[in-house]
Write a protein that binds this DNA or RNA. Structure first.
Lengths: 120, 120
DNA sequence: GCTTGACCTAGAGTTGCTCCAGGTCGCTAT
DNA sequence: ATAGCGACCTGGAGCAACTCTAGGTCAAGC
């Protein structure tokens, strides 16, 4: 697949994908004869996972660490599982922050509606 | 209140609070005789709101715009309401991203457990 | 054969912090 | 008194994670 297809598939920007490759956050991507990136299915799945982890707050350093472990095979499964569980806790904290903010928004919007009611 | 108390209250770092004041993202804070910041209750509530909006992905530019509107009084209530509603939609998208990532984590962890079962 | 569009690279710019060096002030213990 | 401590101050450097720009290659369609 071409880079534009991967961008559409993963939601990452083309620049971000190139940046991830250069910084070693995803594995090196194979190239066509004229130097363009050609993504395998495995590349695509990997970037989809990375996009989801990143979108929910995993730092790049941790993402590349996860990639290193993956490359070392099944011996690192327990470590990888621990990383994903830790990330799950991050999700939980984010969910709580969203809920708190939502409550605050509802409260504020309610007060705005009162003011708008008086003005009318 | 002192800056360390505001940091504890809002979850923002002391550096971030100073940065917000310098960048005009929060209103200027009054000072004690020897130059230390003294936060009013209103300052504290405002920073609490900003912290919650920021934590859930509102850009700083939008936050200061919201502050500008607030300063212009009740005439801007409708605009401010629209901004908060738009932010509520951002919350919704974030919630969906968290849920997708959570599903992915559960799936991956399940597969890791299978591998770990075989290894045992 | 020339233009168009998708790709390439290197490098500069942006956002939003975070950290550091060097300095002030008020308080306590010697 | 003074020496040290802790909480604060400023200006500016450093950093993470993109995002954009300039200048270039190449294949395909008109």
């Amino acid at each position: 697949m071409r880079i534009s297809e991967i961008a559409a598939e993963t939601g990452l920007s083309i620049d971000t994908i190139r940046y991830y490759e250069k910084a070693g956050i995803c594995p090196p991507i194979s190239r066509s004869a004229d130097g363009r990136r050609l993504f395998s299915n495995e590349n695509c799945e990997w970037l989809t996972l990375l996009a989801s982890l990143r979108e929910t707050g995993m730092p790049l350093k941790e993402m590349s660490e996860f990639g290193q472990l993956y490359q070392r095979g099944d011996a690192t499964v327990a470590q990888r599982k621990a990383m994903l569980i830790a990330h799950g806790q991050r999700l939980e904290r984010r969910r709580a922050a969203l809920a708190r903010c939502d409550a605050l928004l509802q409260f504020k919007i309610g007060r705005y509606d009162e003011i708008l009611g008086e003005q009318a």
